[in-house]
Amino acid sequence: MSESMTADAPSEGQEETSASDVVVETRNLSKVYRDFWGRQKVNALKALDLEVKQGEIFGLLGPNGSGKSTTIKLLLGLLFPTSGQALVFNKDASDVSKNERIGYLPEESYLYKFLNASETLDFYGRLFDMPADVRRDRVNELISMVGLEGARRRQLKEYSKGMTRRVGLAQALINDPELILLDEPTTGLDPIGTREMKDLIIKLREQGKTVLMCSHLLADVQDVCDRIAILHRGELKELGRVDSLLKVREVTQLQAQGLSKEAEEEIRAIVAKDGGELLSMENPTTTLEELFLNIVTDSEARPGRRAPSDD
């Protein structure tokens, strides 16, 4: 009896973790924007299949108008899919209750200009039904985190772009969310702000949170993301781990140290057999920028779906 229970329990628990492991899932997700008369205007997203797992920092890349924001809006239920499904925490994106565990930083900070920073955060705290004392602590904590202590009583209409962005970020974190959706988080931030934003994203991962962000700033993405997807004209072009995507498999670079004489000789012999000289041995990495540009020019030349190489 007790044996069967102990035998069952872990397998059940495992199944649960593997099911809840996937935080965001899109199945064949497509979006066609239509005008008032139902005529097709833009085919913004075409049959996107994605999975974002718990604890991951996932980057959506793509040129302007490639459907990144559309994907995020579909995941939030701000848009309804034309076909396919968007699931967040295994719930349909139109389910309001999922929002309890989500934070969202929109492309631009769409906030009420007539409120000041603490009123804004307090207001959003109320929307999470947070009691007054919890709200007060959380608001203070976030305001000092985004560095707006000095401006907390000023109306947002007086704020600079970067300051508004910071309030926007604080707003997205008010409920200590498990999943954070960031639409171009570093736009408008100064270099220090950008650095802080990246540090924050990494800190969020350390806390076990999942982050889905989209950005054009490839360096930022390269620094923080575990996995990326590259979209172009609504189609998924590339999907995989950042480190493996940036490996150039056709080239091998060797650079060795502490090899035994024999081993070294052996390698040297192999290289020398073809008339080469070994300097070092490794796969060089390209920059994300190069990868990105390659994919975009390539897909412009040969439109259509590319089988993404996920691993």
């Binding site: 929002n99 929109p106 769409y110 409920n175």
Partner: peptide, 14 residues
Amino acid sequence: KNRTIYTIVTKPVR
């Protein structure tokens, strides 16, 4: 129009 609604409806607001 101002899209301030985005930050509202992505909260658990009914």
